[in-house]
């Protein structure tokens, strides 16, 4: 029980953000109108994706240092969950863009960068599939993961700031900061971010444990 408090917290926070996100009062802004509610769903997906991919990076580094196969499992499972969050982020973003910018794909640098970042991690999975032997697979895919991560950081955080973007906080606009956001959104937004990140960690944890059991039964047979 005392170990599962954060899982309960995750469920409560996500439930709260869904209910509050749909029902609470939001500021009426031109163009955005009621679609502003999407901020509680779209943005947390990206935060969670970045957290999951960072976890994957950290575990890849650990794998190269100690060759413990569990670290490799953790790296690939957090990358998997990160990719799911990334896809959800793209989908929620596309729906939002359809209503506010007019088209689902508006050639926005952040949108493009996010799609490319997903390609990088899908390539990571393809690379894993093409390697048969476990230790070699772990080592080489870890090398690719670590090599790709800094480039992805450039892609997601530096390039969109160099060009004009429809997203807030780009193209010379002030960055994403607490001052830009309407105060009434914050009590829902922050819990949503934390809730979804915890959710991601939880899903990764479950998948990691399933893989470990699978490996164990494989070894016994």
């Amino acid at each position: 029980m005392n170990k599962s408090w954060w899982k309960i917290l995750a469920v409560l926070l996500v439930l709260f953000s869904i209910i509050a996100g749909f029902l609470f009062h939001v500021p009426a802004k031109p163009i955005l109108n009621e679609t502003i509610r999407n901020i509680h769903f779209h943005v947390p997906m990206w935060f969670s994706m970045i957290v999951m991919l960072t976890i994957s990076f950290v575990y890849s580094v650990r794998y190269l240092r100690n060759s413990n196969e569990n670290d490799d499992l953790m790296a690939v499972e957090s990358a998997n969950v990160g990719i799911v969050f990334g896809v959800l982020g793209l989908v929620t973003g596309a729906v939002w863009a359809k209503f506010t910018w007019g088209e689902a794909w508006s050639n926005d640098p952040k949108q493009n960068s996010a799609a490319i970042a997903l390609l990088v991690y899908l390539a990571y999975l393809v690379l894993r599939n093409s390697l048969e032997e476990e230790q070699k697979r772990g080592r080489i895919s870890s090398v690719y993961n670590i090599f790709a991560f800094p480039i992805m950081v450039v892609l997601l955080f530096i390039l969109p700031r160099l060009t004009d973007s429809l997203h807030p906080g780009n193209g010379g606009n002030p960055g994403f900061n607490t001052k830009d956001m309407a105060p009434e959104l914050r009590p829902v937004f922050y819990p949503a971010v934390l809730g979804w990140i915890l959710m991601g960690v939880w899903i990764t944890n479950i998948r990691y444990r399933i893989r470990k059991i699978e490996n164990k039964t494989l070894g016994e047979n």
Binding site: S113, A117, L119, V120, A123, S130, Y144, L155, L159
Partner: peptide
């Protein structure tokens, strides 16, 4: 594999 692995990584540079 070379193309799959390298294209997404080289896009930021290419842009």
């Amino acid at each position: 594999l070379m193309a799959i692995l390298s294209f997404p990584l080289v896009i930021p540079l290419l842009v």
